[in-house]
Each structure stands twice: as structure tokens, then as C-alpha cells.
Write a protein that binds this DNA or RNA. Sequence first.
DNA 1: GTAGAGTGTGTGCGCACGCACAGAAACGGA
DNA 2: TCCGTTTCTGTGCGTGCGCACACACTCTAC
Lengths: 149, 149
Amino acid sequence: MTRAEPTMGELSARDHAFYGLIWAGTTLAAHVDRALMRAHELPLSWFEVMLWLNGQTAPVPASALGAKTLLSRPQVSRVVDALQARGLVARTPAPHDARSVEITLTPEGRAAFAEANATRRAALADVFDQRLDDADIDALETVWAKLKA
Amino acid sequence: MTRAEPTMGELSARDHAFYGLIWAGTTLAAHVDRALMRAHELPLSWFEVMLWLNGQTAPVPASALGAKTLLSRPQVSRVVDALQARGLVARTPAPHDARSVEITLTPEGRAAFAEANATRRAALADVFDQRLDDADIDALETVWAKLKA
DNA sequence: GTAGAGTGTGTGCGCACGCACAGAAACGGA
DNA sequence: TCCGTTTCTGTGCGTGCGCACACACTCTAC
């Protein structure tokens, strides 16, 4: 037990909101990552790639993943390498552009994602559903929409 | 311009809120980190340590920083090394416990933090104040408070 | 047709970070 | 007093990640 209890000092509401966003995002990401690692040996970065691929039935060019995902484009390449080694995704050359590569979830990949998504929901329910009501959820969604623009 | 526009597929509102939190936190952190690096060659992790130190007039034990900060305790040790090398913080042995180390902001550290905090506010105003109203800020603070507990 | 610019992808490199561990010191019981 | 346990800090180690670069391919202008 530490005697001194440090505080953030005199900060405005906007400052608190900023820090709170980063804190909540980082903490939640770490929590879900640990859950996914324990259950499936699957890092959160792999999960995010599979999440975007799962939402699309048509093959997705790698550049699109780099643009939409939190990962950098080189990192997408490495994650796809790992997923491909496990047979969860497939790389296919793009029909009209020999430079581009299209990526698709294999059936094994869809199954693995479904399981991983279930554990993600369970891990989130522990610290999320029990503390936040629907109004909070709506507020978060509007904030996200406003910041994305 | 990519022809395919991937979406996240059919996800519940809670799923969107979860992803939005991580996305917003990561994006904002990267944005502020770049601003701090360009203006002061000062990473966000260093800034966070100085933020907690600035809120406290009394010396802060290193363990408290490890507990309150987003950084791991070993990383706190390294960040303090770097800050100490620049003369921004000082390490002093704790009075009653020879194991513990207390950390304080030097006057140069307080000045550097004030400048860095100003650039942080400016960087945040670009993408934050102009898009979020007071209701959003309040909502974020309540969400943060609920998740912290 | 060919040269130059622009775009899509993968790789060498360095850095930041967390985990596991080691060493020092306080604490508590025999 | 002395020894085992707990707590506090700092360091070796491996890993994930982004930046800069290299390469392949496409497109446009001449």
C-alpha cells in the first residue's frame, strides 16, 4: 500500500475526457488481448484483421486493411503472413492488377473468428455490460462517429 | 481509390462501442504523440509520467507511477532514466525505506511540462473541441469513471 | 514504344514495451 | 538474533510495431 495517492492535478473536463479515452481504450485493448491469447493464442491485432475480413464477403485488397485497421500497412502484411501460415486466411492475386493482393477468410478462418468473437464478447461483458447502460453506449457511438469524420 | 469498401459487418451497438473506444483512444494517442515529438522531442509516455508528477507537490514513489500510469513498472524505470538524463526529474531515496525511490519534477521539468501541455491542448483542439460538445465530454467522463471502478 | 511518375506490396532496421528475473531491503515469527 | 517471506527497484531478453526503403507493376505523355 502506497502512502502517497497521486492525482492528475487541476485539469479541465476536456483534459479528463482526453485522458479517459486513451486510458479506457488501452486498458480495454489489453484486457481483450489477454483473453484472446489465453483462449486461442490469438493476438488482438490478428483478431482485428479477421474482423474486417469477416464483414466482407468479397475479397479485400491488402491496402484496404491498412487503411481501415489500427495497424500500419507493413504490419498488416506480417499479420496476414501469420494468419496464412495457420490456414485462416488466403492470399490471392488481384484479377486486374498484378501488384495487388486480395485476402479472404478461409472456412477455418471464419470458424476461428466466430469462436474468438465469442470469447471477446465474454471478456467484454465482465467489465463492460455490467457497468455501462444503454445511454452510455449510445454516447460512445456518437463520439466515435464524430471523431471519425 | 479502392473499389471495395470493407465494413465491420453486423455488429451490435455494444460491439461498436467497444471498437470505437479502442479506435478513438489509439488514434488520439498517436496524434498527440506525433505533436509532442515534433514540438519537443518528447514521447507521450514521458509526458504521462510528468503529468502525474505535476499533479503532486510531494515526492512520488516510483511504484505509485507504475500503478497509476498506463506504463508498466519496468517501463517507468526507463522513462525516469531518460527524464533524469535531461534534468527534468530527480530521483531521491525515500526517507523511511531504503528500497523505495521518490521522484520529483525539477523546475526545468515543470517548465517543460507546461510547454508540452500547451502543445497537447493545441493538438487536441484540432480534432477534439471542434467536433465534441459539452454533453459528449460529460458522457466520456462518466464512462471513464464507471470503467475505472 | 519507351521513359518517367505513381501505386501496391513486402522487408531491413531500430525502438518501445512487457515478462521474467536478480538484487537489496523491510518485516515477521521462532 | 536469525531466517524465510514479502516488497521495491532495476536489468536481460524477446516481441510487436512503425519508418524508410526496395521491388514490381500500372499508367500516361511524348
